[in-house]
């Protein structure tokens, strides 16, 4: 940067007064996807904008403004989830989870028929329907398992970040993610087949003993 030129204090490209118009929909859509609650989603987006405003002098400009804000939003979402977890201590669902016993025989071999569903990556409509069923199946997961899975697969948080947020060990994390995937696999098998219109999840879910 030239010493004669104007001093660039901030990497933020746009006027904060335009942030709601520029990023509001995308951030809110993501917050709603993760929190499934309009009030909490609004709170997360508001906190994101305010945090971005406070931190804008530190924005390096190496990523896009959207990416930077999404990073802030993901941590705001984790904060909200952590706060909720503290307020509503979960039942000891993971200890009671029997999805592995339902999936494998005593000798460790697979128990039931293999999944027959397929997703054609070239078919946008089919992928979209598949995601719809996946979303319904995600809601069927035991709460803590669902949160851990979403932090990993949707937020793309590191194992360290998830363990810290949820107060679990790494070994615990691998087991929870594995159980979540086994459960999703079964739910998708029960509720989606190639070429079909999306059916509702829940009618064919595998485990009626999920915690609540």
């Amino acid at each position: 940067m030239s010493e004669d030129g104007p001093v660039e204090k901030s990497g933020v490209e746009s006027d904060p007064a335009t942030w709601v118009e520029r990023h509001g929909d995308a951030l809110y859509r993501y917050a709603l996807l993760r929190l499934r609650d309009a009030t909490l989603a609004e709170e997360a987006v508001q906190e994101t904008f305010l945090a971005a405003l406070r931190a804008r002098d530190r924005f390096s400009g190496l990523s896009t403004e959207r990416t930077w804000m999404v990073g802030i939003l993901k941590h705001k979402i984790v904060d909200l989830i952590r706060k909720q977890s503290r307020e509503k201590p979960p039942a000891d669902a993971e200890a009671l989870d029997r999805i592995e016993e339902e999936s494998f025989q005593g000798d460790g071999r697979w128990k039931n028929g293999q999944p027959t569903w397929q997703v054609d990556p070239s078919q946008a409509q089919e992928r979209s329907e598949f995601r719809e069923v996946l979303g319904e199946c995600l809601e069927e997961l035991p709460p803590r398992q669902g949160e851990v899975f979403a932090m990993r697969e949707l937020d793309d948080l590191s194992s360290e970040e998830i363990c810290k947020a949820m107060g679990i060990t790494e070994t615990n994390l691998w087991v929870m993610l594995h159980r979540a995937r086994l459960r999703l696999r079964g739910c998708i098998q029960a509720n989606w087949s190639e070429g079909d219109a999306a059916g509702g999840a829940g009618s064919g879910g595998q485990d009626p003993e999920d915690d609540g």
Binding site: R29, A38, V45, V119, R131, E153
Partner: peptide
């Protein structure tokens, strides 16, 4: 599918979902 889902929700291609009253509150707060 999960990764695609997250990317899609963050893209501008998705439908606008921010309710008008929420938009106004956010703008006022900002």
């Amino acid at each position: 599918a999960c990764r695609e889902w997250a990317d899609e929700s963050l893209s501008d291609a998705g439908r606008a979902v921010l309710p008008a009253d929420c938009r106004q509150r956010l703008q006022a707060r900002l």
